[in-house]
Amino acid sequence: MASQGTKRSYEQMETDGERQNATEIRASVGKMIGGIGRFYIQMCTELKLSDYEGRLIQNSLTIERMVLSAFDERRNKYLEEHPSAGKDPKKTGGPIYRRVNGKWMRELILYDKEEIRRIWRQANNGDDATAGLTHMMIWHSNLNDATYQRTRALVRTGMDPRMCSLMQGSTLPRRSGAAGAAVKGVGTMVMELVRMIKRGINDRNFWRGENGRKTRIAYERMCNILKGKFQTAAQKAMMDQVRESRNPGNAEFEDLTFLARSALILRGSVAHKSCLPACVYGPAVASGYDFEREGYSLVGIDPFRLLQNSQVYSLIRPNENPAHKSQLVWMACHSAAFEDLRVLSFIKGTKVLPRGKLSTRGVQIASNENMETMESSTLELRSRYWAIRTRSGGNTNQQRASAGQISIQPTFSVQRNLPFDRTTIMAAFNGNTEGRTSDMRTEIIRMMESARPEDVSFQGRGVFELSDEKAASPIVPSFDMSNEGSYFFGDNAEEYDN
């Protein structure tokens, strides 16, 4: 783990906690998980779902989305002020799938948001429990990260689609708070800032007046979040320049895209947490497990152990491969979309394939898809080993990566060399080191050039047997250095459309 220093740990961010010791953190995270579980059980009762239907990941996603929508204050306010045809701002819903006479049927349900809020609060001892809501947002974000390569979004903001390893959390809503900021990748933060800068260039009043003052505060806050992700002084200094700019424009845009590229080699610290679907927490609570009393951590053995003992089902389209669908969801559960496939294969105990080789589309089923041909199958979400999630980018030494994705962002704290394609990355730096950030740029390029592919990161860190909950005997895996390590390699994943 990167030293926490003055930073709060993510469990504290996750639970809005002030400084807590490890036991208190485990208890408050457990409380959050228990609340999600209780809410899910109650919703299944309301909807009269069978046990099997309640364990269907598509039903879980609909129920999670309903509660997130019920608590989305800004959108609710907007919907009330701008009524649109056929949208009731006070209601929320989605597809629920039921097994009827041996076939899967889709039923569109509609609930009062007020009623959903009441059920959620009741499951969370009367609190709004925003930490639990954020947790579900991060699960949705991790699922998107594993399912889609955001080529269009990258290109629109002047970045290269091969930089997708920097895009963790790119679909997280803005209201996801400190826990959300911690899991956002460098590219995601750059993209958010670039969008602001572009608006400022096109709209003279963007930075002016009372609204402009708020915009400015948001801009500086985002700059500080991004600065905190960088691990070298030169990158941090460049972020200070971007933040202090009187009138952010093209120079800042250039600096930010430069920094994003540099992060492929001088990786930023991005938190990883295993956020599971509500249909995993519900049955665990129903079986009598007391998360608050037992304590829970999002970055240790607990999620692995929970998945070892969970039964989750998914709808499967006619030509999809259930094992591939399982891999997709497994990666999402562990926030591992940008991790090295060699490491993932070792931990999972079966070969993890790149996205383009998977015969599976996303987990969600569109409303126009034919239910007649839908089957369902068990998702295999178990693992051979477990490993500690990392909050750091690993040290800054790398190795060759593949054509589709030119770097990785480690999820697990496991000893290995970190793949990246130096030639491709360095070719993108057209040696432009003039301007006010020239000395920093020169320094950053120097550090990137001296990074050695064969150097090892996370020295001495290994994986653990599932029986080793105290992480007492690390097993340090050895990897084939020459092997392909990137998930979005030469990829044809669908595009994420909101």
Rank of each mutant, 00 (worst) to 15 (best):
Pro419Met: 09
Lys348Val: 00
Ala337Cys: 04
Arg65His: 08
Thr134Trp: 00
Lys214Phe: 12
Arg26Glu: 01
Ala123Thr: 11
Gln42Glu: 10
Met426Tyr: 00
Glu465Val: 14
Asp127His: 13
Arg317Met: 05
Asn498Ile: 15
Val463Cys: 09
Ala366Ser: 12
Arg261Lys: 11
Ala451Glu: 12
Val463Lys: 09
Lys214Arg: 12
Arg175Ile: 02
Tyr111Ile: 13
Arg19Lys: 02
Gly349His: 10
Ser297Asn: 03
Met440Asn: 02
Glu24Tyr: 03
Gln58Phe: 03
Arg208Ser: 13
Met136Thr: 12
Val329Asp: 00
Val67Asp: 10
Glu210Ala: 09
Ser69Asp: 05
Ala401Thr: 11
Lys198Glu: 12
Asn483Asp: 12
Met43Pro: 02
Ile316Leu: 14
Asp16His: 08
Leu466Met: 12
Leu307Tyr: 02
Thr373Cys: 14
Arg208Gln: 01
Lys77Glu: 08
Arg204Thr: 01
Phe230Thr: 02
Pro95Leu: 09
Asn309Leu: 11
Ser473Gly: 04
Asn21Ser: 15
Leu466Val: 10
Ile41Asp: 10
Ile406Ala: 00
Met163Asp: 00
Ser9Cys: 08
Arg221Ile: 11
Asp421Leu: 04
Gly37Asn: 06
Gly5Cys: 15
Arg267Thr: 08
Asn498Ala: 02
Arg8Met: 05
Gln398Ala: 15
Met167Phe: 12
Ala427Gln: 07
Ala178His: 02
Gly200Leu: 09
Arg391His: 06
Gln122Glu: 05
Met167Lys: 09
Glu53Ser: 03
Thr411Trp: 04
Tyr40Lys: 00
Lys351His: 13
Pro354Thr: 11
Ser473Glu: 12
Gln459Ser: 14
Lys214Asp: 01
Ile197Pro: 02
Thr396Ser: 15
Ser50Gln: 15
Leu56Pro: 04
Met196Arg: 07
Thr188Trp: 07
Asp72Gln: 04
Ser310His: 04
Cys279Asp: 07
Thr62Gly: 15
Phe71Tyr: 12
Arg382Ile: 07
Lys31Ala: 15
Leu276Met: 15
Met448Thr: 15
Met43Lys: 12
Ala493Ile: 09
Arg389Thr: 07
Phe206Ile: 13
Arg98Leu: 02
Thr157Pro: 01
Glu434Thr: 14
Met196Trp: 05
Glu454Leu: 13
Lys236Ile: 12
Gln235Tyr: 04
Asp302Asn: 14
Tyr148Gln: 04
Thr62Ser: 13
Met136Asp: 00
Ala286Arg: 10
Pro303Asp: 06
Met43Ile: 13
Ser482Asp: 10
Ile445Tyr: 04
Asn309Gly: 11
Ala427Met: 15
Asn321Lys: 05
Tyr97Cys: 15
Gly460Ile: 00
Met331Pro: 04
Asn250Thr: 15
Lys325Trp: 08
Tyr289Ala: 11
Asn224Glu: 11
Gly249His: 01
Pro318Cys: 04
Glu465Lys: 13
Ala123Gly: 14
Gln168His: 12
Ala332Thr: 10
Trp139Tyr: 13
Pro453Thr: 12
Thr360Ser: 14
Gln399Ala: 15
Pro173Val: 11
Leu47Trp: 06
Leu56Thr: 07
Asp497Thr: 00
Arg342Glu: 06
Lys273Cys: 03
Ala251Glu: 03
Gly169Gln: 06
Asp439Arg: 01
Val155Ile: 15
Arg216Cys: 14
Gly37Phe: 09
Glu434Gln: 03
Gln235His: 14
Gln459Thr: 02
Asn125Gln: 08
Pro83Leu: 10
Glu375Arg: 03
Phe489Lys: 05
Met191His: 08
Glu320Ile: 04
Gln308Pro: 05
Asn202Ile: 10
Asn319Leu: 15
Gly169Leu: 03
Asp240Val: 15
Ser392Phe: 13
Gly209Leu: 04
Gly485Gln: 10
Pro303Phe: 08
Glu434Phe: 05
Arg174Thr: 08
Asn370Ile: 10
Ala427Arg: 07
Ile475Phe: 14
Val299Trp: 07
Arg317Ile: 11
Ile316Cys: 15
Phe206Arg: 02
Lys113Leu: 03
Met331Ser: 06
Glu210Thr: 04
Ile475Asp: 02
Ser170Gly: 09
Val186Phe: 10
Glu292Ile: 09
Ser367His: 05
Met136Ile: 15
Thr15Glu: 00
Ser377Cys: 14
Glu11Gln: 13
Gln235Ser: 00
Asn124Cys: 09
Ala237Gly: 14
Trp207Arg: 08
Met440Thr: 10
Leu276Lys: 03
Ala366Glu: 04
Arg221Lys: 15
Pro453Ser: 12
Tyr281Asp: 03
Leu328His: 01
Val285Thr: 10
Met196Gln: 09
Asn124Ala: 11
Ile96Tyr: 07
Thr45Lys: 05
Val270Thr: 15
Tyr296Val: 05
Lys90Ser: 04
Ser269Glu: 08
Ala332Asp: 03
Glu80Asn: 09
Ser314Gln: 07
Gly462His: 05
Leu276Cys: 15
Leu108Arg: 09
Ile25Glu: 02
Tyr10Pro: 14
Gly86His: 14
Arg74Thr: 07
